[in-house]
């Protein structure tokens, strides 16, 4: 049951990305392209996606976390770290460069798999390799 529910949640997440236009990397790059503001090519849509998502999660998380436990689990798993270390700056800095180069972040990379052909597949394979490398390096240092 929990597996079916997680498929449905992934589907809703993906439909959100598609309806928002975020499954198209060109739209993402046009948001990041503040140099195009003067020429009229800037597309502020991504800011509205974040606003819509946060509007729902800001209230929704607070309501959900009133429960003693999640439906299919024994406890809520919330990130416990609070300190600002080097990794929380360096990781996102690297992530942002990659995001700016192709316009793909992980969610839209997966939604592109079905229709994006070899280009999307290449990105996803490279992304998974990068993820594995980062975790390997993090575990080795720990």
């Amino acid at each position: 049951m929990a597996v079916v529910v997680q498929f449905a949640i992934g589907l809703v997440f993906g439909l959100g990305l598609v309806i928002a236009g975020m499954s198209n990397p060109a739209k993402v790059l046009n948001f990041l392209d503040i140099g195009a503001i003067r020429s009229g090519g800037w597309d502020p849509s991504l800011a509205f996606v974040l606003a819509g998502a946060i509007a729902v999660t800001f209230i929704g998380f607070r309501l959900v976390l009133r429960a003693a436990q999640p439906v299919f689990g024994e406890s809520f798993h919330l990130p416990g770290k609070t300190g600002i270390d080097a990794r929380i700056v360096i990781g996102p800095a690297i992530f942002g460069v990659g995001w700016g180069l192709a316009g793909f972040c992980p969610g839209p990379a997966f939604t592109a798999l079905a229709t994006g052909g070899g280009a999307a597949l290449m990105f996803v394979v490279a992304m998974m390799a990068g993820m594995g490398a980062a975790r390997w390096l993090a575990n080795r240092r720990a």
């Binding site: 990781g91 992530f95 990659g98 992304m127």
Partner: peptide
């Protein structure tokens, strides 16, 4: 695409 994918994957997990 390959370079971008490596950076996105590495950076997301590192951060």
């Amino acid at each position: 695409l390959v370079v971008a994918g490596l950076l996105v994957g590495f950076g997301a997990v590192w951060g």
